[in-house]
């Protein structure tokens, strides 16, 4: 096969869902830091979200599976720690999808802007942690529903 362009690879990776929050793609999450060809080897640079996140291993497997399925033979996955991942790297599309999915997107203030279900701004924090390392638990005081907030780091 002919060598796919870097832009093409980015598009393919944008179709790979995050294993824990499948409405986000790996590109939406901001963890793909670089895609480059080094001669005939495709190098994909990935940064971890949280250092202990168990999804990291699965993510690497899924990147590999997705690219192999497209015919990439020589692939090198590189890990990059610095600059450390920040939720500022979440794409606009990703933020919108998170909210539609019921997870409040990260806000610089550290608190969600509004309830992802009813839009109320009357909110209370239940816990600083949630079902995955990247989320905290909040509750809406208007519709009384609990919801998750994507932690801002």
């Amino acid at each position: 096969m002919s060598r796919p362009s870097v832009e093409q690879v980015w598009q393919w990776l944008d179709a790979v869902p995050d294993p824990e929050i499948p409405v986000l793609s790996l590109v939406d999450l901001g963890i793909i830091r670089d895609v480059a060809w080094a001669e005939d080897t495709l190098q994909v640079t990935v940064t971890p979200t949280y250092s202990g996140c168990p999804a990291t291993t699965v993510i690497n497997l899924e990147i590999e599976a997705a690219l192999r399925a497209r015919g990439v033979e020589k692939l090198e996955l590189r890990r990059q720690l610095s600059p450390a991942w920040t939720t500022d790297w979440l794409s606009q599309k990703g933020r919108q999808r998170l909210e539609e999915y019921g997870i409040a997107p990260p806000q610089p203030s550290g608190a969600p802007a509004r309830c992802p279900r009813c839009g109320s701004e009357q909110l209370e924090k239940i816990s600083q942690f949630g079902s995955t390392p990247c989320k905290a638990q909040w509750r809406c005081q208007s519709c009384l529903e609990p919801f998750e907030h994507f932690k801002c780091i």
Binding site: P48, Y50, S51, G52, P54, S127, Q128, F129, P133
Partner: peptide, 20 residues
């Protein structure tokens, strides 16, 4: 439950840092 989850997540971060 919320504290249980918070403690487990804290432990997970610490173990992740250990790996590094």
């Amino acid at each position: 439950l919320e504290e249980d989850i918070a403690l487990a997540n804290t432990a997970l971060d610490l173990i992740g840092q250990t790996q590094m």
